[in-house]
């Protein structure tokens, strides 16, 4: 319960950054923070007390394991995050190249 709330707080920190920051780099970082929070939330929901990682090993007793499904989902989500970061970074450096600034309000003013 506390962990869920803290994880949600991390999500809101990212949202705060996206809503208030005007610097392209910080916007990219904020979207990354939101991604971390979502991923972590999913894995938190899948944790089982006393469970071990869901990989069978030779000679190990088959004890309780944590929920493997969120892990599979988060794997996908991490890849998507990297894609977003790469695309946003590419757009940001194109914008910087043109306007020589990372400030989105200035970019808007310059582009009219």
């Amino acid at each position: 319960m506390t962990l869920y709330a803290l994880c949600f707080a991390l999500f809101l920190v990212g949202l705060y950054g996206l809503l208030t920051k005007r610097d392209l780099i910080k916007i990219i970082l904020s979207s990354g923070i939101m991604g971390y929070a979502c991923n972590l939330m999913l894995v938190l929901f899948g944790y089982r007390r006393g469970g071990v990682y869901p990989i069978l090993e030779r000679g190990r007793e088959a004890g309780p394991m944590v929920d493997p499904l969120p892990q599979a989902l988060v794997l996908t989500s991490i890849v998507i995050e990297l894609g977003v970061t790469a695309l946003l970074a590419a757009l940001a450096i194109r914008l910087f190249q043109k306007y020589r600034t990372y400030d989105i309000t200035k970019i808007r003013r310059l582009s009219g």
């Binding site: 991923n39 972590l40 894995v43 938190l44 899948g46 944790y47 469970g51 071990v52 990682y53 869901p54 990989i55 394991m65 944590v66 892990q71 988060v74 794997l75 991490i78």
Partner: peptide, 15 residues
């Protein structure tokens, strides 16, 4: 690191 604590080594490596 948190993924490691949560018994998700796959994710820890990839992350």
């Amino acid at each position: 690191l948190a993924f490691l604590f949560l018994q998700a080594p796959d994710l820890a490596v990839v992350q």
